[in-house]
């Protein structure tokens, strides 16, 4: 009886280790994106995922010689679903921030786009002059002076951002109590409210606003003020990976570095954004 029990336990242990070893052999990688953040990633009229990151992910997978499946996942659950194991990688315009790093790991960045405020052309806020980029890490004092100027201009206004983004965190960190912050499930939803005049402005990355403003849907909008990087905005956009999957992170690091070096990232960036968002090396 006891012998049989030992045999069963040993068998189970073996099965367990076999299962674990199998999981680490990355032949297939499941990648999640949001599918509502044009042109980074979006769903077209045929119901298919498209965009800069979809092209990039396919390119990276080819480099890593793995089979990839790209799925859509709502933004507000994208990190909990990664840690719950629903997929292996997030490629969804996600900035690498200290706070997110407490929960998940990131690859090296594949994009860098500053944040910017967009308002209605008809709004008095449209008069805020555009300015250069300020980094909240490298040039903190000067950047915060700009923030103070914005605070005065935006006092009492309603400003939107997508929930759980660096933009929402930026508003929380610097504008709480000064502006009425509204958070949305998708960027598309704050655009609808911005064009309708329910909110006075919205924060998103310049890589989102520029292409939108060039389209008829964004004809009533204009970007104003300085752009920001660093601080709550983190260190560029990277692929989110579970902390346990260090091997997968290494694979993505290698592939992204190679794709940045041979100009693939720049090529895709020009195709989708019409400007280069390759991060500085």
């Amino acid at each position: 009886m006891q012998q049989r029990l030992i045999a069963v336990v040993a068998g189970l242990a073996l099965a367990a280790t076999a299962g674990a070893a199998e999981a680490k052999d990355w032949k297939k990688v499941k990648i999640a994106t949001e599918g509502a953040y044009e042109p980074w990633n979006f769903t077209n009229a045929q119901g298919k995922l498209e965009g800069f990151e979809v092209d990039l992910a396919n390119d990276l997978c080819k480099r890593m010689k793995v089979e990839c499946e790209i799925v859509a996942q709502d933004w507000d659950g994208i990190i909990p679903s990664l840690t719950a194991g629903k997929y292996d990688v997030i490629i969804a315009g996600m900035s690498i921030t200290a706070k997110r790093k407490e929960v998940i790991d990131f690859s090296v960045p594949y994009a860098q786009t500053p944040a910017m405020l967009a308002v209605l052309k008809s709004s008095p806020l449209a008069k805020i002059p555009t300015d250069k980029n300020y980094d909240l890490d490298k040039n903190k004092a000067e950047a915060e002076k700009q923030v103070e100027k914005l605070k005065a201009a935006l006092k009492g206004k309603v400003i939107g951002a997508q929930v759980s983004t660096t933009h929402a965190n930026f508003l929380e960190a610097y504008f709480k109590g000064i502006v009425d912050i509204r958070t949305y499930k998708t960027t598309e939803q704050h655009d609808l409210d911005l064009t309708a005049g329910r909110i006075d402005g919205a924060y998103a990355s310049i890589g989102y606003w520029k292409p939108l403003l060039a389209k008829p849907a964004g004809k009533d909008l204009v970007t104003v003020g300085p752009t920001f990087t660093g601080g709550p905005f983190g260190a560029g956009v990277g692929a989110g990976i579970r902390k346990a999957d260090a091997d997968l992170k290494k694979m993505f690091d290698g592939a992204i570095t190679a794709a940045a070096k041979d100009g693939t990232v720049k090529k895709l960036s020009m195709k989708w954004f019409k400007f280069d968002i390759t991060p500085e090396q």
Binding site: D76, G77, I79, P80, T83, V163, S164, T183
Partner: peptide, 11 residues
């Protein structure tokens, strides 16, 4: 609840 999850990721 959504806001707390967006800060803690503990759904």
């Amino acid at each position: 609840a959504h806001k707390i999850i967006s800060e803690t990721y503990r759904a």
